[in-house]
């Protein structure tokens, strides 16, 4: 059984009196330790799909199983706990907590979500800081570092809880091309080290080639699946 199994997933949004279908009968299975990308133009349903996989939203219809759990049946609190246990998130706008230092931002999920003992926290945070090459900036606040550095911190924060799955919605959208490639490379490297499944969405054709599996979405439907082995140009 895959890490993620989606069967006949539909997602409709109500805009006024009009119902809009964002996802239309999606069926897919994602294996553990994948480095996978959903690509497609704006409005194709990438973010909606990531939100469903990330238990931030629920499908209108269909079955979605993540890490062996039927996430559709979870209530709000159970979804929060599930996310804290199994998932890490990387956001387009980095979404670091401005009042916490780089170190504290990475440490945050270990304290607030997983209640990890201090020594273990320290070990994990320092190790990740080194991996993302942010050790020297550990005492800086988010407004004192660059966008690329912020996203490195976000990657470290997503991995610090040792999740099975990291979801990144347009993680390079606010970065210049060079930094974007570096972030994707970093994600890939971290995926290799940790064995965590990385799923990211993008509409940037230049970075999508880094993904081992590429799902192409159009109008809420999967129109293509490519298994590139991750060897396409980055």
């Amino acid at each position: 059984m895959g890490l993620i199994t989606a069967q006949n997933i539909y997602k409709d949004y109500q805009v006024g009196e009009v119902s809009l279908r964002a996802l239309n009968d999606l069926n897919f299975e994602i294996e553990p330790a994948s480095f996978l990308s959903f690509v497609g133009p704006s409005g194709s349903g990438k973010t909606t799909l990531l939100n469903l996989i990330g238990c931030l939203d629920t499908p209108t219809d269909g079955t979605l199983t993540v890490a062996g759990t039927d996430v559709v049946s979870l209530d709000r609190k159970q979804r929060a706990a599930f996310r804290g246990r199994h998932m890490g998130f990387i956001f387009q706008d980095f979404n670091l907590i401005p009042v916490l230092t780089v170190y504290e931002n990475i440490e945050y999920p270990l304290i607030m979500v997983q209640n990890v003992p201090p020594e273990e926290r320290r070990r994990r945070v320092l190790s990740l800081l080194e991996s993302v090459e942010m050790t020297e900036q550990k005492d800086k606040y988010p407004d004192q570092i660059s966008g690329g550095q912020k996203q490195r911190v976000a990657v470290a924060r997503a991995l610090v809880t040792e999740p099975e799955l990291v979801l990144a919605d347009e993680p390079t959208a606010n970065l210049d091309s060079k930094t974007a490639y570096m972030i994707i490379e970093l994600m890939k490297e971290m995926q290799r080290k940790s064995g965590t499944t990385f799923i990211f969405s993008t509409h940037d054709q230049k970075i999508v080639g880094a993904a081992e599996i590429i799902y192409t979405l159009e109008d809420g439907m999967i129109v293509d699946r490519k298994d590139t082995g991750g060897n396409a140009h980055v």
């Binding site: 709000r76 706990a81 804290g84 998932m87 956001f91 907590i97 979500v113 997983q114």
Partner: peptide, 16 residues
Amino acid sequence: MREIGTISAIGTMPGK
């Protein structure tokens, strides 16, 4: 609000 969304997304329980 976005910060609340972030901490909530990464699994912070409503009580916290």
